[in-house]
C-alpha cells in the first residue's frame, strides 16, 4: 500500500468513526434528558411488550452515548462496531416494519419531540449510516480475518 493510499484509508476510517460517533451522541442526548418522552416513542412503535418499554427507554440512550464516545476515542472498537451494526439493523427493521403497516409514529431518531414521523427518508438515512458502520466492521475485523484465513 502506498503512503498516499494509506493516508487516504486512514482518513476514511477516522471520518467514519467520527461521523457515527457524533450521530450516536447527538441521538442519545435528548433521550437521556427526557426518558419518559422516549418511552412513549418506544411504546408508539408497538413492537415491544409493556414490560420492556421503560427498561429500553432507560438503557438504550446510554448504549448509544457510550458507543458514540467509544467510536470517537477508538476504545473497545470491535465491541462498539458490533453494537453499532446491530443497532442500526434493528432500527432499520423497526422503521421498515412500521412504515409497511402504515403506523404513523414519531421516529424518535434524534429527538423525543413530535414532528419527525417515520418515512422512506428516515430509513435511507439509517441505511447510509449502516454503510459507514459496515465499513468500520470490515476495517476492524478485516485485518484479523485476512490473518486467520492465511
Amino acid at each position: 500500500m502506498t503512503k498516499k493510499r494509506k493516508n487516504l484509508s486512514r482518513f476514511f476510517y477516522l471520518s467514519a468513526r467520527l461521523i457515527l460517533g457524533v450521530i450516536f451522541i447527538y441521538a442519545s442526548y435528548d433521550k437521556i434528558l427526557h426518558p419518559k418522552a422516549f418511552a412513549e416513542v418506544v411504546y408508539n412503535y408497538q413492537i415491544l411488550p409493556d414490560a420492556l418499554i421503560n427498561v429500553t427507554a432507560i438503557f438504550l440512550p446510554w448504549l448509544e452515548m457510550l458507543m458514540g464516545v467509544f467510536l470517537i476515542v477508538g476504545f473497545w472498537m470491535p465491541g462498539s462496531v458490533m453494537w453499532c451494526n446491530i443497532l442500526l439493523v434493528v432500527y432499520i427493521s423497526a422503521l421498515c416494519f412500521n412504515l409497511a403497516r402504515g403506523l404513523d409514529v414519531n421516529c424518535g431518531c434524534f429527538s423525543t419531540t413530535k414532528g419527525s414521523s417515520i418515512s422512506i427518508e428516515t430509513i435511507l438515512w439509517d441505511v447510509f449510516f449502516l454503510a459507514f458502520s459496515v465499513y468500520l466492521a470490515i476495517v476492524v475485523f478485516g485485518s484479523g480475518f485476512s490473518k486467520g484465513s492465511n
Binding site: S9, R10, Y13, G142, G144, S146, G148
Partner: peptide
C-alpha cells in the same frame, strides 16, 4: 480502503 491491515497480530477468531 482498509487501513492498518497488517498492524494487528490477532486472528479473526481472537478478534
Amino acid at each position: 480502503f482498509i487501513p492498518f491491515q497488517n498492524k494487528t497480530s490477532k486472528t479473526f477468531g481472537q478478534q
